[in-house]
Design a protein around this nucleic acid. Structure first.
Lengths: 93, 93
DNA sequence: ACCGGTCACTTGTATTTTGCAAGTATGGAC
DNA sequence: GTCCATACTTGCAAAATACAAGTGACCGGT
């Protein structure tokens, strides 16, 4: 399995990279991610679990039934790839 | 829609980036891609059509019923993103 | 002209993933 | 206690993907 295939195994699923991109700006709560991205709530729950299991993000308990999701170092290491893909998507360079 | 979402709309589908990565080494034929990547043949046909429609690659007729798939400039512009994702997937840096 | 092989697909169907709508659980404020 | 917000879960339909088999065009040899 190539390096690229290994990466896509973790962040290749739908919404995964968009979630990580959103977290590059700092920790976000579940409802924020859902509203900002328009991702279906069940998919968001599944992706957050997968990304946490992969060491990309962690859950930070805030108050009672509120928590925030924050990138780990490994998660922030995706910034280069996300920026590169974003630049390509802007199709002007 | 963000730049990243626009990019993923084109190369976010399964196998798409792996196909492009393979073509970074130069034009390849259908059967080569299929054997090298292990992608199901119907998915390969669909992806190649989509990537051609998106201007990422073109078909080069070779002989009779043989043709090659080659990246366009826009396709080669994905190299940075692919390299960045590959580096991340290697999980050592 | 016929046969066999290669190449680039298509077609049919099962399985997995995703999307949508609604419901559940927990805790705090009042 | 009731109400509300937050973070999910659950059930089911729709879409994407995987697997297996088949199709059509062309060529080279006989």
């Amino acid at each position: 399995m190539s390096d690229l295939a290994a990466a896509l195994d973790i962040v290749g699923a739908r919404w995964a990279l968009l979630i990580v991109e959103r977290l590059l700006d700092g920790p976000q709560r579940y409802g924020d991610l859902q509203r900002d991205l328009g991702v279906p709530t069940n998919m968001l729950a599944i992706r957050l679990r997968e990304l946490e299991a992969a060491g990309v993000l962690i859950r930070l308990p805030l108050r009672h039934n509120t928590r925030a999701y924050a990138l780990t170092d490994r998660g922030f290491a995706l910034r280069e790839a996300i920026v590169a893909l974003g630049n390509w998507g802007r199709r002007d360079s």
